[in-house]
Amino acid sequence: MQTVRVSNVESAPEETVCADGPPTTDVEVLEPRDVPLGGPRAMTVRRTLPQRQRSLIGAWCFADHYGPDDVAASGGMDVPPHPHTGLQTVSWLFAGEVEHRDSLGTHAVVRPGELNLMTGGHGIAHSEVSTPGTKVLHGAQLWVALPDADRHSPKDFQHFVPTPARIDGATVSVFLGSLAGQTSPVETFTPLLGAEVVLDAGATVELGLDAAYEHGVLADTDGFTVDGTDLARSALAYLRTGQTVLTLTNRSDDPARALLLGGPPFEEEILMWWNFVGRSHEDIVAAREEWMAHAERFGEVQGYAGEVQHLPAPTLPAVRIRPRRNASRAPQDS
Rank of each mutant, 00 (worst) to 15 (best):
M1N: 10
M1K: 07
E10D: 13
E10F: 04
S11D: 14
D20H: 04
P22F: 09
T24K: 12
L30F: 12
P32R: 02
D34I: 06
G38D: 11
G39L: 01
T44F: 03
R46V: 00
R46G: 02
R47N: 03
A59W: 05
A59G: 11
W60H: 13
H65W: 04
D69L: 11
A73D: 13
G76V: 01
D78M: 04
D78I: 01
V79A: 14
G86M: 04
G86K: 02
S91L: 14
W92H: 03
F94H: 12
G96K: 03
R101Q: 13
S103D: 08
V109I: 15
V110N: 07
V110Q: 04
R111L: 01
E114W: 00
G123P: 10
H126K: 08
E128F: 00
V136K: 06
V136R: 12
L137A: 03
W143D: 08
V144D: 03
L146K: 04
D148I: 03
F160T: 05
Q182G: 06
P185H: 07
T188G: 10
T188E: 11
F189V: 01
F189L: 07
T190S: 14
T190P: 05
P191D: 12
A195V: 08
T204A: 11
A211G: 05
E214P: 01
D222K: 00
G228K: 00
A237N: 02
A237C: 03
Y238V: 11
Q243P: 00
V245I: 11
V245S: 07
N250G: 10
N250D: 14
S252T: 09
D253R: 08
L259D: 06
L260G: 11
G262D: 13
G263S: 11
F266M: 03
L271H: 06
R279C: 14
D283W: 06
A287I: 04
F298D: 09
F298Y: 15
G306P: 11
V308Q: 15
P314S: 10
L316R: 03
I321E: 14
I321W: 05
R329P: 02
R329K: 09
